[in-house]
Amino acid sequence: MNSSMAEAKATTKEPILQAEGLTKAYENGAIPVLHGVSLQVYPQQTVALCGPSGCGKSTLLHLLGGLDAADAGEIVVRGQPLRPGRMVQNMLRHQVGFVFQLHNLLPDLTLTENCLIPTVAAGVPRAEAMERLHQLADRTGLSHRLQQRIQKLSGGERQRTALCRALMNRPSILLADEPTGALDEATSRQIFALLLELVDREGITLVMATHDRALAARCDRLLEMHDGKMMDGAGSGARTAG
């Protein structure tokens, strides 16, 4: 994806994901983590979130996906302010997919069963879900592993399965927290290429926390965090990486 296209995306559309003045502290305020973080992410952008360990990248992703609540500030998803409860539920089912550093699959279930979990939660008809699974398995090269238990898959296969699962319900936003952080370098490149390809093909907006500068460089935008704050101008939407 080249820079002019990214800028076109940024200027022609409303932000799909927006945060304003997010603060978050753990342990009843004893561990302040985010200090007024704001950002706008535009549809179909790929955004890398970088910064030293402990600066609050994972925390921010969790807030954006509704997995945790901010102490102050607002998050707006597709024009709607994010409220806990039913709205988060719906968002997790239809708008947002998560990929973590650890695959977080259920090891006793098969690849297919793991991938069907979000569709069961969302009440997607079985046939439709299977069709989607075959499509994704095809694109991620997992077609021959569908009935395999997770325990028997390699690390790369597991992460590809996690990617499939995150995309099953056709989310418009993918939040990835060091999705290749637990893999060796070669596999890491491979999975990341796959991730970018899928996101591009399906028009998904990606926000990815990563320590890998080389990977970050391949995203449309790079957001730099430090001590719970965005670096100057980082959240505004201009392309800074590159």
């Binding site: 539920q89 089912r93 998560f98 259920l106 979990i117 939660a121 699962r165």
Partner: peptide
């Protein structure tokens, strides 16, 4: 994990 994947 189930919660993150949309289980109510």
């Amino acid at each position: 994990i189930l919660r993150v994947n949309g289980f109510s």
